[in-house]
Nucleic acid binder design. Structure first.
Lengths: 339, 339
DNA sequence: CTGCCACAGTAAAACGTTTATCTGATGGCG
DNA sequence: CGCCATCAGATAAACGTTTTACTGTGGCAG
């Protein structure tokens, strides 16, 4: 039951293996009659080209690696899904790996990914620090970094969202509605994009002489909900919460539900990311919408260009993440009363 | 700028390539001193083993393919994520492919996956029909089919949920609360697991002389919400809705929110699957909880056993999907009034 | 001292492709 | 009619690794 190789097809079709190869790739003329026969035989035998052998010979292969922190986080899942679609449309296959927000595992997955000698790599690093392996590959392999970029002058293309503006806009909205007690629900405050969002919020608050509080909820919903509840119990609850990721949005909401705090009557909420569940509620969430499709599109274009040999200066794409105003932010009670 | 190969390492370390290979694999004794030197040189040079070459030579490779309909559907994303973790723990790499619920694309992705000559495959078919390629591979490749199994006597291991019981339990719950007008929100009624769930519901209803209605919402949330809204407008709204997937749960909820129907005051809802967003609400959802971790675990164990050469009869694992009673189902108004 | 075995390491073949180079055959054209 | 170009197809080398079979070199028992 040995696997069927090109040799078997050649024998069965009564031609040489070179002819079979050419018949499939079409890079040398083969008579239509022979092509037909080869294809028929291949189908009958259930022949499948061995990609490993093919790529070993050619050196190149239409495969790109994609490394993200997690597939359970809808943001990354959507990103991967979009990238996969774009890649497939261009005839590329995608190798997905997840780091689980763990630097060690990230390094291991990266090694595994690179072992396939892909023609490019799109990665969302799990910390601000770029893994050594990755840094070394930057010299030779087309790479696009997305979302979590901790440094400024990287020698590769990067695609990020304007986190500062997003934070600023979210805070502005809350402030305009009259909120003065604002709590920032961060995942990990040290992460560059999160830090940027926080900076945007803080700056907006500064002009209104408001000092937001910050609570770190981590990257797990359950854990985050517990921490949020603890924070609420300890410090009393603010009039508005601005969540920094979809996971913290969920964590905050879970805590509110557990404690019985109503949104938006008792606390206003600005969420992050924009998913179906956010609008599938009596009070749809106002949230900062990250343009996932655009992010994927940009990242893919950059990578394509690099793979095609572009020697342009590394691009640093910054996309807008506009606020979607819906119904989860309203004036706080004090203001309502005064009005 | 040619890639670094084992040859470069061998030259630099002053040994033969065979020795380098053995130093890494450890399958032949190499003096500790040489091992150390080889490892050091490899690190210094940034050597990465070419998996393609390796697998070409050995024929086998610790890689398994995973094929799911979509990564945007949290059910599948979680499944893939769990499988990845299990595989990694056993030293396997996972190749992920998505079919997008499209039979043609499924076939293409399957071909691509098999081109890597993985040592096993875990697949969630996108229709009841098993693709030809897959059927043919069943004879030789370790395969585990999950979730969407359209046929009975497959020659491979399968892992499914007891969909009939799940449907029955959900319906029972609604009936006990006094509901008589029940609407089933199906994705695609023809899909085997969905059909089973519907059958479970219908049978439970039968004993209460209730005839549930059915609406098909598809696999996309937006589209589904529109169809649900249309159904509500056309036929009036039932007292209880039982959703058949997490996507239809979301679609139903979206429609309710748009039309302004309150859950559970105006309509009760039994959801499907169990995700964070379902409990992050004022009224947490009662839902059928699919044991994703167990599904992944079972599928992986089966595959491991097959890869290890087990010749057992094909197993047909059926897992329980118990109902999580929370707050989205309560007595319908008529009954409340009568009480 | 001789034969034998264990040990450390090497040479070379093989995996399934692709592709550069080669071979005949056919036909066009001067 | 001879020559060259064109074409379909074949041969064989190469890709980077693993692994089998081999070569020396010591050590040790007889």
């Amino acid at each position: 039951m040995a696997a069927i190789t090109i040799r078997d097809v050649a024998a069965e079709a009564g031609v040489s293996i070179a002819t079979v190869s050419n018949a499939f790739s079409g890079r040398k003329a083969v008579s239509p009659e022979v092509v037909r026969r080869v294809e028929e035989v291949a189908r009958a035998l259930g022949y499948q080209k061995n990609i490993a052998a093919s790529q070993l010979r050619t050196g190149r292969v239409k495969v790109v690696g994609v490394l993200v922190p997690s597939l359970v986080d809808t943001f990354f899942a959507s990103l991967v899904s979009d990238l996969e679609e774009l890649a497939e449309a261009d005839g590329y296959q995608v190798l997905v790996a997840t780091s689980g927000d763990n630097a060690e595992r990230e390094a291991a997955q990266l090694d595994a990914l690179l072992g396939w000698k892909p023609s490019g790599l799109i990665a969302v690093p799990c910390t601000n620090a770029i893994p050594d392996t990755l840094r070394r590959e930057m010299a030779t392999l087309p790479i696009v970094l997305v979302d979590r970029i901790g440094e400024e002058d990287l020698p590769v293309d990067t695609v990020v969202v304007d986190n500062h503006a997003a934070g600023h806009e979210a805070a502005q909205h809350a402030l305009e509605m009259g909120h003065r007690e604002i709590l920032i629900a961060a995942s990990v405050a040290g992460l560059r994009p999160i830090a940027e969002r926080i900076r945007g919020i803080t700056e907006a608050c500064l002009s209104a002489t408001v000092t937001p509080r910050i609570v770190e909820l981590g990257t797990d919903v359950e854990e985050g909900a517990a921490r949020m509840a603890a924070c609420l119990a300890r410090d009393g609850h603010p009039t508005a919460v601005i969540a920094m990721t979809n996971v913290t949005t969920l964590a905050a909401l879970t805590a509110f539900a557990q404690v019985g705090i109503d949104v938006p009557a008792e606390v206003s909420l600005v969420g992050f990311d924009d998913y179906a569940w956010m609008t599938a509620r009596r009070v749809p969430l106002s949230a900062v919408r990250q343009p996932i499709a655009d992010i994927a599109q940009s990242a893919w274009s950059c990578l394509r260009a690099r793979i095609a040999g572009s020697g342009d200066q590394p691009a640093r794409l910054v996309l807008d993440a506009p606020l979607q105003c819906r119904s989860s932010v309203c004036a706080p009670r004090a203001v309502q009363g005064a009005a």
